[in-house]
Structure formats: structure tokens, C-alpha cells
Amino acid sequence: MAVFTEVSLDEARAFIAPLDVGTLTGLRGIGAGIENTNYFVTTDRGEYVLTIFERLTFEQLPFYLHLMQHLARRGIPVPDPHADAAGEILHTLKGKPAALVDKLEGGHQLAPDHHHCEQVGGMLARMHLAGQDYPRHQPNLRGLAWWAETVPLVLPYLTAAQHTLISEELAFQQELADSPAFQGLPAGPIHADLFRDNVMFAGLPGHERLTGFFDFYFAGVDSFLFDIAVCLNDWCIDLDTGALIEDRAAAFVAAYERSRPLEGNEVRLLPALMRAAALRFWTSRLWDFHLPRDAALLQPHDPAHFERVLQARIDNPWHPPR
């Protein structure tokens, strides 16, 4: 999240007026992240998040917003979009698509332990199950096709060793995607970006409870296993080295399987999907770092982190204990 589009108090006041959320009392830009413009909106009734979409189109956005609404109605703690009198949850602000959603309780847990990983794993499985009857379809827009388009754009900025690593991994993932085992993986709507800063917890230290998943604007229909892999590569690693913390990963997967047991091919292909997840975020961070957009508040992430994660997943593949 970042601020690419400046919004005044008067503009925010006019935007929320049809949404029946009260009178505006505060507006504050959110500097974290790199995709959309985001503001915290405070009214006399509560706190909300205003998002102006900088890359996603009016045609793409109904998938994300209605998915959030669908999950919220099935008891998954996600931000519920606010509708106008006509029931519309996708709005316009300064000529761009925009939405207002509930602000979740709590804060991020940036140093998770088993307790947090188990809760995220369990809720992720519940989310996958809750989304199985979601009627809309949209592919993962940051999936294999996007990697194949984007890797050539960042190659000029890489060393010879990095060039080899990313090119060979892309070829590996393209071959994997053509395999019957991969094509038969269980699939449905996934979050695809469920990092530590996209989950909220509340409560006393050591007793925190998960209060929600948010930022669904990379969601799409893809294998559930890719969602698990994204999480394992963030929640269950040493951030300095990229090495997997295996007991934390095992706790995450065990909690997930209490709601949705993994199929045999999912267990077998998990190491390859963890490589895929690392490749996806290395590629996107290279793109954002070397080909940035202007923003009033912009904090691009270090691409080298997911280069280390990818190398660690190649060197030390991991299967969940059975």
C-alpha cells in the first residue's frame, strides 16, 4: 500500500457520503506497500480503509471485492466492502476505481512463532473451503504468464549468476506447469499474497488471536498449494537467510490439514511450489525496484530477500512430515 493519488478531506468526505458510514473525522495516508493508494478513514461511527486502485481495472476489481464479501458472509474474518444505496461496492474517486472496507482489529505480528503460524494455517484452510462455491473466476494475474512476461524486463539489471538462476527457475516452473500432476492440483480462489503484514492479530503477547486477512488485490483462482507455499516462505523462515524453520512450517501445515487434508500430489509438489512462490516475489520485487512508479509514500522491498529464499528452497527442499 502507498499513496500515488492524493485525496483531500473534502474529496474523502464526498466519497463516503453515499456509503452510510458516518461523518468524516480523520484521513491519513498509509505508506506501506507498493500497489495501490490507501488511506485510513475515521468517522464518528468507526474506522475504515479507503483504497484507490492504481493498476487494477474496473473490469478486474469485482472479482476481488465480491470475493471479500463472499468470504465475510461465510464467517472468514476479512474486510467487508461498503455498498452504496444501490448495493454497489466498487466506486470511483478522482477518475479511478475505489472501495471502502472495514478496518480490522489489532496489528501485525512480524515475529511469528508456532502459535501464530498454526492460526494462519488453520484460517487459510477455512478460507479455501469457504471460497469453493464462489461463482466468479479470474486467474492469478501474477502467475506463470506474468513471470514469463516480466523476467525478460528485469534481466538487464541482473548479474550473470542472477540471470542464470532466474532463467533456469522460470524454465523449471514452465515445465512443471505442463505436467498432469500440477494440472490436477486442487484449485480455487486464493489470496496469493498472505504475508505477515496482511494478517492481523489482537490480544496479549503469547495469547494473540487472529482477527483477519486483508489486501486481497492479488487474489485469483490458482492451486491452493501455491497459497500455502507463499505463506510458508514468509511465516516460517529466517528472514536474514531465507532458511525454512521446519518445526514452524510443520505446525502451519498440520493446522491447515485439520480442516483440509492435502492430497498426495500436493505433498509431493510442495517443494516445487515453494520455489514457484519465491520466484514470483523475486520477480515482482525486481520489477518494482528497477522499474518503479512515482508515489508520495513508496517503500520498495529488497529483491535480494527472495533471491535468497529461492536459492534456499532449491538447495534444501522440504516435505511436510507424514
Score class of each variant (00 low, 15 high):
125 A>L: 08
81 P>I: 05
105 E>M: 05
72 A>W: 07
84 D>E: 09
84 D>N: 13
68 M>L: 14
114 H>F: 11
76 I>N: 03
166 I>A: 10
139 P>N: 07
115 H>I: 07
47 E>M: 08
163 H>Y: 09
71 L>Q: 06
82 H>T: 10
73 R>N: 15
128 H>P: 09
67 L>I: 06
120 V>K: 14
66 H>G: 09
54 E>F: 10
100 L>C: 06
71 L>V: 10
156 P>T: 07
105 E>H: 09
104 L>W: 03
83 A>C: 04
119 Q>D: 12
70 H>Q: 11
73 R>P: 03
44 D>K: 14
162 Q>Y: 05
50 L>A: 11
161 A>G: 11
59 E>G: 02
141 L>P: 06
81 P>Q: 10
88 E>F: 01
104 L>D: 00
111 A>Q: 15
75 G>T: 07
63 F>A: 05
81 P>L: 08
135 P>G: 10
166 I>R: 04
50 L>V: 04
123 M>F: 11
88 E>W: 02
63 F>M: 04
49 V>T: 12
111 A>P: 01
48 Y>C: 09
101 V>D: 00
91 H>V: 00
91 H>T: 01
148 A>P: 00
43 T>G: 12
65 L>Q: 04
113 D>G: 15
159 T>H: 08
61 L>R: 08
135 P>D: 11
143 G>E: 11
62 P>N: 06
68 M>D: 08
61 L>E: 06
88 E>D: 09
84 D>I: 03
162 Q>V: 03
135 P>M: 13
72 A>F: 11
121 G>H: 05
90 L>S: 00
125 A>G: 06
90 L>Y: 00
127 M>S: 11
150 T>N: 01
126 R>M: 10
157 Y>P: 02
62 P>E: 07
81 P>G: 14
131 G>F: 04
66 H>R: 11
78 V>S: 09
105 E>N: 07
157 Y>T: 08
165 L>R: 13
160 A>D: 13
79 P>L: 12
145 A>V: 14
109 Q>D: 12
131 G>A: 15
75 G>H: 09
101 V>C: 05
84 D>H: 03
100 L>W: 00
43 T>I: 03
85 A>P: 01
120 V>N: 12
136 R>I: 15
100 L>D: 09
130 A>G: 05
117 C>S: 14
153 L>H: 08
152 P>H: 05
139 P>T: 08
155 L>Q: 10
